Simulated scan of single mutants.
Amino acid sequence: MADSPSRVSRPLSPHLQIYRPLFTMVMSIVHRITGIALYFGMVLFVWWLLAAASTVSAFDTFSSLAGSIIGMLVLFGFTWAMIHHALGGIRHFIWDFIHGFGPNERVLMAKLTLAGSIILTIAVWAIGLGLKG
């Protein structure tokens, strides 16, 4: 057999430590994190449904925990994660139609997703707390 050629020295694959974090890259990671948060946040939703469907004391227990400061912060974060993930999904839906791939458009859509999620979360909570009284 002939001698095999010597192995060519190639660079290793780049890792996240090499890349400069771009806004769109961070928003992609946040989109994945909100998806995971929604998965675990569904436990709260199921707990609320089960408490509402069972006894008054079970619903009171849920209401007292959800109405606490920590409970409200968790629900606020869950609301933001839901809205942010939905807006990110709309952004990806627009990309499915091959729109918004320009460098400026990508950054603008990512910024609109973040700003929209914050504004809509505050609006939802303002309306909800306003209706609660």
Rank of each mutant, 00 (worst) to 15 (best):
I29Q: 05
I29T: 06
V30Y: 09
H31V: 13
H31T: 15
R32V: 15
I33D: 00
I33A: 09
I33E: 02
T34G: 06
T34H: 08
G35H: 00
G35K: 05
G35C: 01
G35S: 04
G35W: 03
I36E: 14
I36S: 14
I36W: 13
L38S: 11
Y39R: 14
Y39A: 15
Y39N: 15
F40M: 07
F40K: 05
F40I: 05
M42C: 13
M42Y: 08
M42Q: 10
M42N: 09
M42F: 12
V43C: 11
L44Q: 05
L44M: 13
L44W: 08
F45W: 08
F45A: 07
F45H: 09
V46C: 04
W47L: 13
W48G: 14
L50F: 08
L50R: 00
L50T: 04
A51F: 01
A51V: 00
A51I: 05
A52C: 00
A52F: 04
A52D: 06
A53N: 07
S54T: 12
S54Q: 11
T55Q: 03
T55P: 03
T55E: 07
T55H: 02
V56Q: 10
V56F: 14
V56C: 07
V56K: 11
A58S: 14
A58V: 10
F59C: 10
D60W: 06
T61V: 12
T61G: 12
T61H: 09
F62E: 11
F62I: 13
F62A: 12
F62S: 14
S64C: 09
L65S: 06
L65H: 04
A66D: 03
A66Q: 01
S68T: 04
S68W: 03
S68C: 05
I70Y: 08
M72C: 09
V74E: 13
V74A: 15
V74T: 15
L75R: 04
L75S: 02
L75M: 09
F76T: 07
F76L: 07
G77V: 02
G77A: 11
F78H: 08
F78I: 06
F78W: 04
T79G: 09
T79F: 05
W80E: 15
W80D: 14
A81W: 01
A81M: 00
A81C: 05
A81N: 07
M82A: 15
M82W: 10
I83P: 05
H84D: 06
H84T: 02
H85W: 15
H85L: 15
A86N: 11
A86V: 13
A86S: 13
L87E: 00
L87I: 00
G88S: 02
G89R: 07
G89M: 00
I90F: 02
I90P: 01
